[in-house]
Amino acid sequence: MDNLGVFLQIIFWGLYAGCIYILLATGLNLIFGVMKIVNFAHGEFLMIGAYITATIFFISGINPYLIILLSMLALIGIGAVIERFCFRPILGTGKLNEIFLSIGLIYIFQNGAAIIWTDEWQSVKSPYDGISLPFGSLSVPLDYILIMFFTAAIICGLYLFLKKTTIGMQMRATSQNRKGAMLVGIDVERIDVISFGLGCALAAAAGTLWIVSGQIFNPYMGSIPAIKAFAIIILGGLGSIPGAIIGGLLMGLAENGAAFLLGGIWKDAISFVILIIVLVVRPTGLFGEKGD
């Protein structure tokens, strides 16, 4: 394959990986925007979402792309429970407590999943496995295109939800000014539960799309992508959804470029190298502002 072909290949891989990061980072941004909490265990929701999809698929054999909705619904429920019983009691006691609490959640989810589903690597076979579409000089698996399509659809759906529905508007109001939202009669605790649940649902979508595209998975799959998603929202600006989208795409591209140039081992480390460089140059992130 010629140089241009390799270049296009890396771009496509980057876009594909970027989709997963976009969903994760948008979910985190939603939660951070409304509740101002930092949940390092967000990747565990991605993992649980992936396992729920896989389990339903193994039992029923339904097209896994359709199971994504069930998985997202399940994660809204799980997220609501976690918000109510873990994060709400410590809301406002400091960021460090939230980080420590997420470590507890990571222990529980990873090892709980290992008990239920074992810690072996598993995989799901997509019904479109092996089908590729020609794209100029290279052929792109249909799964990758479907994943980009699903990501775009979910993000557009979220955008409409935030702009057009009452709950969406209440979420934006709470995120802009919590006290003000309370004053105008918004039940902010209810909004917290909804935002947390929605954020988890986006993680479930990311997990589902990741495994449906043929990636192998185990209970520890989620933690590194989640921390990278945090890096993305810091780079892209806290609470900014367009920032999360651009950041996610850039991270996907940078990672795959680095894996190609420096070797696959650098895939995880490179995102943190970028993060550290950006934070040294601009301690508030690329588009971030002062304040929380």
């Binding site: 921390i227 810091i234 650098w266 993060l275 550290i276």
Partner: peptide
Amino acid sequence: EWFLAMVTFGFAIIVQTLTVS
């Protein structure tokens, strides 16, 4: 404080990557 948590977390991964590459 929580940026710091992330940078240190990432730093451990960078060091590990350097060690094995």
